[in-house]
Design a protein around this nucleic acid. Sequence first.
DNA 1: AATTGTGAATTGATTCACAGCT
DNA 2: AGCTGTGAATCAATTCACAATT
Lengths: 215, 215
Amino acid sequence: MARVNDAVKKTVRPEIPRKTVYRLSVYLRCLQRLKGNAIRTVSSEALAKAAGVKPTQLRKDLTYFGQFGTRGLGYDVEELATMISDLLGTNSLQPVILVGVGNLGSALLSYRGFEKEGFEIIAAFDLVPKDKRNRPRPVFSMEKLPGFVQERAVRMAILTVPAIVAQEVTNQLVEAGITGILNFAPLVLQVPEEVVVNNVNLAIELENLSYFIQS
Amino acid sequence: MARVNDAVKKTVRPEIPRKTVYRLSVYLRCLQRLKGNAIRTVSSEALAKAAGVKPTQLRKDLTYFGQFGTRGLGYDVEELATMISDLLGTNSLQPVILVGVGNLGSALLSYRGFEKEGFEIIAAFDLVPKDKRNRPRPVFSMEKLPGFVQERAVRMAILTVPAIVAQEVTNQLVEAGITGILNFAPLVLQVPEEVVVNNVNLAIELENLSYFIQS
DNA sequence: AATTGTGAATTGATTCACAGCT
DNA sequence: AGCTGTGAATCAATTCACAATT
C-alpha cells in the first residue's frame, strides 16, 4: 500500500506544541508579578527560574514566535508581557458563558478569579431555572443559548453539566457557534476538529497525586 | 570530558510517564461506565476509543504494570478496573483536607463530586474563621492543621489560598506531613522532592483555549 | 562580559509491525 | 481468527553547546 501523499504534510502552520502555549501563560504570570515590582528587564535565567523551567526551554518556547530579547541584556518585561498577551488573545476582555449551574457550576460562577486574567463569565445557562438569590450573574434557560451566543459573539464556554448530558449539550454549543470548551465533565467529548476542548478533571488530578505519593 | 557514569542510569524504578498515569484514570472512568452497563469484557480497541486514545497506546500504558489481557479475547472489565484502582490507590476512601476557604475553596467544599471517585474532603482550614451556615464541613483555623493532619494521617491537600500566601502555607503543609498538593494558586510552589504538586489553573486553561480558537 | 537564539544531540513518548497466545 | 504484548521505528520535546550580538 503505497503512501500516496507522504509529501503533502498537513499544511505550513508552524505547529506550536500545546505545552509551549501553556508555558506562555505561566511566563505571563511571572512577568506580571515582575512588572508589579517595577522590574523592567529580566534574563531568561531569572524568568525561567520563576516559572519553574530551564532557561533554554524558555528561550526555545519564545523562538516559536520570534525574537524578543536583547543579547547581553535579557528581555524587556513590559514588552514581553504585551507580546505574550497579544499572542494568547487576552489583551481584550473575552466573554465566556457557563453551562450547567449545579454545584461546581455555581461555585465557578461566584469565583471572580478569571476577570483579572482577561475573561468574564457574562451569563450562565441551565435546563432548570435557578433560584436567583445570591447569583451574581443571570442564569438563562438553554433555549436562550443560541441567540445569546450569536448576539454577543461568544466563542468560549465552560461546561459544568453532568456527564450523562455533556455530549448532547456540547453538540448544542458547537451548533450555536462556540469554538472553545473548558470541559469539567468526566468524559471525552466528540467535537468537530475546528472546536478545541480543554479538560479539567479534579478527581483525576487527585488520583494522579494519590499514585505519586504512594510509598 | 569523559562521561564517567554513563552506565549508572538513575536507579532501577520502571519510571512510568506521568501522562500514562493520567490516562490510567481515564481508562478507569471508561471501565466503570462499561461495568455499569454490565459489559464484562472489552478489547483494547473499544476501550481506547472510549478513552480517546489509540489502541496501541492503551496496551503500551498497561504493559508498564504487567499483563492483564487475554489474547484473542480482550480485557476483563472488572479485573482491569480493580487493578487500575489498586494502582492509583483509590480503592479505599482517601482523606483530603482543603486549605483556603475563599471563593473557590468554598465552591470546592460544597462540590461533592470527589466522593464517588474515592476522595473525601474531611476538613477545611483557613486563617480567618468562617461563617458556619451552609457549610457542609468544619472549617478550622490554621493552628489546628498540624495536629489534625497527624492524627488523621492525611497525606493530600487541596490548596485554594491567595497566591501571596501560597508558598508560606505550602511550607506549613509540608511541615505537617502532607505529601501531595493539588494547587489552585497561580504560582510555582517550591517543595522538597518527596512532595508532589499538581497544578490546576483555570485562567490558564481559558487562556490556552483562547490561543487555539484564534482564527 | 553577559545573555540571547538556535542547530544538533539527546531524551522521551507514541505508533508500527508483527510474533505469540488463546 | 482475533487480539494482546512488545521490540523497533518514528515522531516530538527538551536540553546542550556554542556562535552571534549588545
